[in-house]
Amino acid sequence: MAKSDAFLEVDDLAIHFGGIKAVDGVTFSVKKGEVYTIIGPNGAGKSTIFNLIGRIYDPTHGSVSFEGKRISRLPTHKIVGRGIARTFQNIELFEMATVLDNMLLGRHAHLGAGLLSHMGFFPHVRREEERHRHMIEEVIDFLDLQHYRDQRIAELPYGVRKVVELGRALATEPKLLLLDEPSSGLNVEETEDMAFWISDIQSILGITVVMVEHDMTLVNEVSDRVLAINYGKVIAEGTPEEVQVHPEVIRAYLGGDEDEPAEGPKEGEGDGEG
């Protein structure tokens, strides 16, 4: 099914929780090097799609392929080895560890050498460690985290943690980066920084980005293409401008006839979703 030119291919993906069709036959494909954003009202199934790509859930049917290979039956811990990294809406860091240690954990999948040689701290282990440290320092420089290097996560403000999580994802040297609401909990300035970094990740590091996002300023600024979903189904796909004026999208956000009016897909909405 997977086409050879598609980087990430999601085909007829569905997951049902009991009678609820959280994701119901979603198909889309992401090209190498683009920033692809999934939008939709609360409860539309955006995060569920992410958790399906990220192998937290098993799909009821359909498949996900990455670089032409099916990943939709892969164990969760093998995702990173394929070159996929992710961040979380509510930040999942190792809170008792320092910024540096969190990032070094991002190198876990790249670690060689065995148990006893680590305990003995042999020269080749030291060299390997130095190589990883060097890579981490580049990420720290890239994200301007020098100042926080040796601080514990628990001591850091929310906005910084969000950047550390992004840094940890980059430390795994991904080809595809999944960002789950990168702006949630950030103030306007921090969101601007985030937009800047996402653009740099795309243009300087050449990493493909798929993100779920509410803040339409950020979406417009960084996205090449946007996918709008509602009730687990695709309602529109195209450039940010096209999707925002799509009648189905407007109806989804404004609630059509039956629901009470909600906020439209306008600037500045950044609320979390359950």
């Binding site: 999942e92 809170e95 701290f121």
Partner: peptide, 22 residues
């Protein structure tokens, strides 16, 4: 110092994040 020992610490601090570290 060991990869396994650090993986154990990571798993006990945050399972979800540990999965995505491989």
């Amino acid at each position: 110092y060991t990869k396994l020992g650090i993986a154990m610490q990571a798993s006990s601090q945050n399972q979800l994040a540990a999965y995505y570290m491989g």
